[in-house]
Lab assay of single mutants.
Amino acid sequence: LKGVVVAGGVLAGAVAVASFFLRNKRR
């Protein structure tokens, strides 16, 4: 169960970083 929580956190972080980079590329 702990691994699932960690994986979810990593996935959420990756999505946040990806969206951040996409926003920067638009400018």
Score class of each variant (00 low, 15 high):
residue 1 L to W: 01
residue 1 L to P: 10
residue 1 L to T: 15
residue 1 L to G: 11
residue 1 L to S: 03
residue 1 L to K: 09
residue 1 L to A: 10
residue 1 L to I: 13
residue 1 L to F: 09
residue 1 L to R: 01
residue 2 K to G: 07
residue 2 K to L: 02
residue 2 K to Q: 05
residue 2 K to M: 08
residue 2 K to Y: 12
residue 3 G to F: 03
residue 3 G to P: 03
residue 3 G to K: 09
residue 3 G to Y: 06
residue 3 G to M: 15
residue 3 G to Q: 05
residue 3 G to C: 14
residue 3 G to A: 04
residue 3 G to I: 07
residue 4 V to L: 11
residue 4 V to Q: 07
residue 4 V to C: 14
residue 4 V to Y: 04
residue 4 V to R: 08
residue 4 V to F: 06
residue 4 V to A: 11
residue 5 V to K: 14
residue 5 V to S: 06
residue 5 V to W: 15
residue 5 V to Y: 15
residue 5 V to H: 15
residue 5 V to N: 04
residue 5 V to P: 12
residue 5 V to F: 14
residue 5 V to C: 08
residue 5 V to Q: 06
residue 6 V to T: 01
residue 6 V to M: 02
residue 6 V to P: 04
residue 6 V to Y: 14
residue 6 V to R: 02
residue 6 V to E: 15
residue 6 V to L: 09
residue 6 V to N: 12
residue 6 V to C: 12
residue 7 A to S: 04
residue 7 A to W: 01
residue 7 A to C: 13
residue 7 A to M: 12
residue 7 A to G: 06
residue 7 A to N: 06
residue 7 A to Q: 02
residue 8 G to M: 06
residue 8 G to F: 02
residue 8 G to D: 02
residue 8 G to H: 11
residue 8 G to A: 10
residue 8 G to P: 05
residue 8 G to C: 01
residue 8 G to N: 00
residue 8 G to R: 05
residue 8 G to Q: 04
residue 8 G to K: 04
residue 8 G to V: 02
residue 9 G to N: 12
residue 9 G to M: 13
residue 9 G to I: 15
residue 9 G to S: 04
residue 9 G to F: 03
residue 9 G to D: 08
residue 10 V to Q: 13
residue 10 V to W: 13
residue 10 V to I: 00
residue 10 V to T: 13
residue 10 V to P: 03
residue 10 V to L: 05
residue 10 V to G: 10
residue 10 V to E: 13
residue 10 V to H: 06
residue 11 L to A: 12
residue 11 L to R: 11
residue 11 L to Y: 08
residue 11 L to K: 04
residue 11 L to V: 03
residue 11 L to N: 09
residue 11 L to W: 02
residue 11 L to Q: 14
residue 11 L to E: 09
residue 11 L to I: 07
residue 11 L to H: 05
residue 11 L to T: 09
residue 11 L to S: 03
residue 11 L to G: 08
residue 12 A to V: 13
residue 12 A to P: 02
residue 12 A to M: 13
residue 12 A to E: 08
residue 12 A to D: 09
residue 12 A to H: 15
residue 12 A to N: 14
residue 12 A to K: 04
residue 12 A to Q: 15
residue 12 A to F: 13
residue 12 A to Y: 00
residue 13 G to W: 09
residue 13 G to D: 11
residue 13 G to H: 00
residue 13 G to A: 07
residue 13 G to Q: 12
residue 13 G to Y: 12
residue 13 G to P: 07
residue 13 G to N: 15
residue 13 G to M: 14
residue 13 G to T: 13
residue 13 G to S: 04
residue 14 A to H: 08
residue 14 A to L: 06
residue 14 A to Y: 15
residue 14 A to V: 03
residue 14 A to I: 12
residue 14 A to Q: 04
residue 15 V to A: 13
residue 15 V to P: 10
residue 15 V to Y: 12
residue 15 V to N: 11
residue 15 V to R: 10
residue 15 V to C: 07
residue 15 V to Q: 03
residue 15 V to L: 06
residue 16 A to I: 01
residue 16 A to H: 11
residue 16 A to N: 00
residue 16 A to S: 04
residue 16 A to E: 15
residue 16 A to C: 06
residue 16 A to Q: 14
residue 17 V to R: 06
residue 17 V to C: 06
residue 17 V to M: 02
residue 17 V to D: 10
residue 17 V to T: 12
residue 17 V to A: 04
residue 17 V to Y: 02
residue 18 A to I: 11
residue 18 A to V: 00
residue 18 A to H: 02
residue 18 A to M: 14
residue 18 A to S: 12
residue 18 A to E: 10
residue 18 A to P: 12
residue 18 A to L: 05
residue 18 A to N: 10
residue 19 S to D: 01
residue 19 S to K: 01
residue 19 S to Q: 06
residue 19 S to M: 01
residue 19 S to E: 10
residue 19 S to I: 08
residue 19 S to H: 04
residue 19 S to L: 05
residue 20 F to Q: 11
residue 20 F to S: 06
residue 20 F to T: 06
residue 20 F to D: 02
residue 20 F to L: 11
residue 20 F to P: 11
residue 20 F to I: 08
residue 21 F to S: 09
residue 21 F to M: 15
residue 21 F to G: 06
residue 21 F to I: 10
residue 21 F to A: 06
residue 21 F to H: 15
residue 21 F to C: 14
residue 21 F to V: 07
residue 21 F to Q: 02
residue 21 F to D: 03
residue 21 F to K: 12
residue 21 F to N: 15
residue 21 F to P: 12
residue 21 F to L: 11
residue 22 L to A: 10
residue 22 L to F: 10
residue 22 L to P: 07
residue 22 L to S: 08
residue 22 L to Q: 15
residue 22 L to V: 12
residue 22 L to Y: 00
residue 22 L to G: 02
residue 22 L to E: 14
residue 22 L to T: 01
residue 22 L to I: 13
residue 22 L to N: 03
residue 22 L to D: 00
residue 23 R to G: 10
residue 23 R to F: 06
residue 23 R to A: 02
residue 23 R to I: 01
residue 23 R to M: 15
residue 23 R to V: 09
residue 23 R to D: 11
residue 23 R to P: 09
residue 23 R to N: 01
residue 24 N to H: 00
residue 24 N to T: 11
residue 24 N to R: 07
residue 24 N to C: 08
residue 24 N to P: 10
residue 24 N to E: 11
residue 24 N to K: 13
residue 24 N to F: 14
residue 24 N to G: 05
residue 24 N to L: 00
residue 24 N to S: 03
residue 24 N to Y: 14
residue 24 N to M: 14
residue 24 N to V: 10
residue 24 N to I: 04
residue 25 K to P: 00
residue 25 K to Y: 00
residue 25 K to N: 04
residue 25 K to M: 00
residue 25 K to I: 00
residue 25 K to T: 13
residue 26 R to F: 07
residue 26 R to D: 09
residue 26 R to K: 02
residue 26 R to E: 03
residue 26 R to C: 12
residue 26 R to Q: 08
residue 26 R to V: 00
residue 26 R to S: 09
residue 26 R to Y: 13
residue 26 R to N: 09
residue 26 R to T: 09
residue 26 R to P: 15
residue 26 R to I: 11
residue 27 R to M: 05
residue 27 R to I: 11
residue 27 R to G: 03
residue 27 R to Y: 08
residue 27 R to H: 07
residue 27 R to A: 08
residue 27 R to K: 11
residue 27 R to V: 13
residue 27 R to N: 01
residue 27 R to Q: 01
residue 27 R to W: 13
residue 27 R to P: 12
